[in-house]
């Protein structure tokens, strides 16, 4: 649904002049023809303001990207010598140190040579995907019911769901650790999957409810009047929330993949995941920064790719649906 930001009106309400079959091309392009920025008549000093804005944004981008750059380059730097810092104040030396080096994949090879790192990677994938699937399946049905239903206690149900999502991770870990120990689930992947579901299920319900809310119930009614049963009508509107489903799957995977506490406490060696393994490299004899950075890249890269795929819904997800784009 498009909304004209200048007038706040909805196009499909105002744009009704042409209703005949012989539509003109411009009929298909709703929305403002005028760039909002052009509305402001630029005053004196706006050129300076423009330079300042660009400079600030540029600096911020550098501040954001430098750690990524250093992480990636360091993961390809070979020896300790390549890691050495120039003398303090030697900016020229710093530049050459940062940009000129002969890359090597030895850290990556080292990681996987131990034979365990693939397993950690697999653990991460299994735990994250399983929890995401469970959360989305149960979350979709519940979100639909909450979106469509009117029942007593709905507000309380809301609150319970969202407060579960916002509970401190460590506070949840304490009782889960005791419970999983009783059920002999410690150090297994199912323990991790269940633990991630504590946060992912309420998250999925919450976000998907927002997606169902934006699908008019009249569409389902239209299907029913057309001759579909209620269940068929529900099934038919699933494609309308498909982007939401995809986004929620990715966000659930992201949350589980990036978790450290649950996996550190309840995963043990058998269900060790990438973040725990990466942190674990530190405590080994001496800190091998090259290898830690390589492990970091392996941990972060898949999430960066997924995040860019659902970029549009990322913010909505990270803000619990408070922000829609």
């Amino acid at each position: 649904m498009t909304t004209n930001p200048r007038t706040g009106t909805r196009d499909d309400v105002t744009q009704v002049q042409d209703d005949r079959a012989d539509v003109r091309g411009d009929d298909l392009l709703p929305g403002p023809a005028v760039d909002a920025r052009d509305q402001v008549v630029r005053g004196r000093g706006s050129r300076i303001a423009g330079v300042v804005i660009t400079a600030f944004l540029g600096l911020y981008v550098i501040w954001t990207l430098v750690p990524f750059y250093i992480m990636i380059t360091s993961s390809f730097k070979a020896s300790d010598a390549a890691f050495a810092l120039p003398p303090e104040g030697d900016w020229g030396g710093a530049v050459s140190q940062l940009f000129v080096f002969s890359p090597t994949t030895e850290h990556y090879r080292g990681l996987f040579a131990q034979g365990e790192f693939e397993r950690y990677f697999t653990n991460s994938v299994v735990a994250a995907v399983a929890s995401a699937v469970i959360s989305v399946v149960f979350g979709t049905t519940a979100a639909y019911a909450i979106s469509r239903g009117r029942f007593r206690g709905k507000r309380d149900l809301y609150f319970w769901i969202i407060s579960t999502r916002m509970a401190p991770v460590v506070a949840v870990t304490v009782p889960l650790y005791a419970i999983f120990k009783n059920f002999a689930l410690l150090n297994t992947l199912p323990a991790l999957i269940l633990a991630y579901t504590v946060f992912n299920l309420p998250f999925a319900i919450w976000i998907l409810k927002g997606f169902f809310d934006s699908v008019s119930y009249e569409i389902e009614e239209a299907y029913m009047v057309d001759g579909h049963s209620r269940w068929q009508a529900l099934w038919k509107i699933i494609p309308l929330v498909a982007p939401g489903l995809a986004a929620v799957v990715v966000l659930c995977i992201l949350l589980a993949w990036n978790d450290f506490i649950f996996a550190a406490v309840m995963g043990g060696e058998a269900a060790k995941t990438l973040p725990v393994a990466t942190q674990g490299l530190k405590s080994a004899s001496g800190i091998e920064w090259g290898q830690i950075m390589a492990a970091g890249v392996v941990t972060v890269a898949p999430m960066l790719l997924l995040g860019i795929v659902i970029r549009k819904y990322m913010v909505q997800g990270l803000t619990m649906g408070a922000v829609k784009q």
Partner: peptide, 25 residues
């Protein structure tokens, strides 16, 4: 710019911690 800004948020917090520990080393 938004794509760039989203990048740190994708990073596992513990990895971010390790990365910055390296930067602060």
């Amino acid at each position: 710019l938004i794509t760039v800004l989203l990048m740190p948020m994708m990073m596992a917090p513990v990895v971010a911690g390790l990365l910055w520990q390296y930067l602060y080393n």
